[in-house]
Simulated assay, not measured.
Amino acid sequence: MKIYCSKDALLTGVNTVQKAVSNKNTLPVLQGILIKAENNTLIFEATDMEIGIRCSVTAQIEREGVIVLPARLFSEIVRKLPDATIEIEQRDDSINIHYYQSDIVLKGFDPDEFPLLPDLYDAVSFNLPISLFKTMIRQTVFACAVEENRPVVFTGTLLQIEGSNIRLVATDTHRLAYRISEIENPEDLKFYGVIPAKTMSEIYRLLKDEDEILTIRFNQSQISFQFGSVHLLSRLIDGQFPNYKQVIPQSCQSKVFIASKTFSDSVERASLLARDSIHANIVRLSLEKENLWIAQASEVGKISEQMDIKMEGTEVKVAFNAKFLLDVLKVIDSEEIIIELSGPYGPGIIRPIDDPNYLYLVLPVRTS
């Protein structure tokens, strides 16, 4: 291999695939990035056997070749290279990085030991606007479970395609985020699979607004996402996702209309004191006619805030984990939200006032 390319091109390739590099696998080659030079293109690949990412950049290829380089060291070297034309030449199991009058020699791994990203067999595909899918991921993926002791199905997001609808649903059993959108589905494709949260977060990170169309391909065990020069392949989580429709209340006892930012700012202030209380990060809401009170007291102090609201239904007092409220308020773009409550112990529903396609369910906290 002998190639010439810019630092920016190398940086693009490294930054795109590095999150798929395995940090835990004992196989040294999986801690590397495969680099392949062919047809005036430099291809980068990385995988941890659960997610794989491929990216291609333009380069001047004088001699084709392939090698696997240690990801962490190579990425650090690339970041510190000067803004100049970089020459990379492979010599057996090493590469020589040449710039100006300087050289860096870096040992690599045997590319024959690197597991290449497989092609999806018996796969079907459809296209989706990137801006739509980014919004759907942003409004759901944060509700996935992060604890390793939870059933693995809760660490992923359900993707469901049915008719002209696409849904993303995420839950950690304490809360649930649900988003539905309309898509073009002329072939009436159907899909029901749970995608790891890591995969969804990576897709969100890599999707660029200038890339307009996302192509999704899937079979029974894997799913791939293609956009621009990036190809991401992921396994699907094996397991039955809970029946989310069953837990979403169809009615409520109290309905509150409130400004999103006003509510978010108040919850955030109350949470500062809640962190030091015996009920960690809990804020208490009290709904009384045209007022909403947020209160919290701890050893370091107390807070009580009153907000004007519009309310329908019965008065109620309820407590929630402040983080669970703030997480959803960060992803709702509407200036006003609706909070639906079914008593002090029933699940609460938060919706944007101008978007019927999104809802967030959160369970209250029982306090003495």
Rank of each mutant, 00 (worst) to 15 (best):
L81H: 09
G346T: 11
L10Y: 10
M307W: 08
E340K: 15
L325S: 05
E162Q: 11
L106R: 08
I337R: 00
E89N: 11
R235Q: 15
A71M: 13
T262H: 04
E305S: 15
I183C: 11
I203W: 04
L158I: 06
I166W: 07
L214M: 08
P70D: 03
I332T: 01
T12N: 09
A259R: 06
F320I: 02
R167D: 06
A322M: 01
L128H: 00
I213R: 12
Q160D: 05
T12M: 10
E45V: 14
L117C: 04
K310P: 00
L42W: 03
I43P: 00
N185G: 02
L11F: 11
T171C: 13
I180M: 11
C55S: 15
P118I: 07
E212C: 04
I203P: 01
K289P: 00
L361H: 01
C5M: 14
S201W: 06
E184F: 01
Q253W: 14
G156R: 01
S264Q: 14
I166A: 08
S224G: 05
A145H: 13
L10C: 04
K134V: 11
T367I: 15
P111C: 08
S266I: 09
S201C: 10
Y99S: 08
T157H: 07
V152S: 03
S298C: 15
S56P: 03
R217T: 14
M136E: 04
R269N: 11
I237V: 05
E87S: 13
L69D: 09
P111N: 10
I161P: 01
M1E: 12
V105F: 09
L341Y: 00
K317F: 13
Q306L: 07
G156F: 07
V328R: 04
E268V: 03
A319F: 03
E299L: 08
N281H: 12
V316S: 00
N357V: 07
D355C: 10
I339M: 14
E45F: 10
Q306H: 03
T171Y: 06
L363M: 15
V29E: 03
V14Y: 07
A145F: 10
I183V: 08
R284T: 15
D327H: 07
K80N: 11
S56Y: 06
R79G: 05
V365M: 15
L287P: 03
C5K: 02
E315S: 14
S221W: 09
T215V: 13
K7D: 01
I183T: 05
R269W: 11
G52F: 02
L81E: 08
V362Q: 09
A297V: 08
L73H: 04
Q306R: 05
E113D: 10
A143F: 02
K107Q: 12
L273Y: 09
D327K: 13
L116W: 09
Y178K: 10
E290D: 14
A9M: 07
E288Y: 14
K24Q: 15
P129M: 08
V57W: 00
I35L: 12
L287Y: 08
N243K: 12
L10T: 04
N357S: 15
T135E: 10
N281S: 11
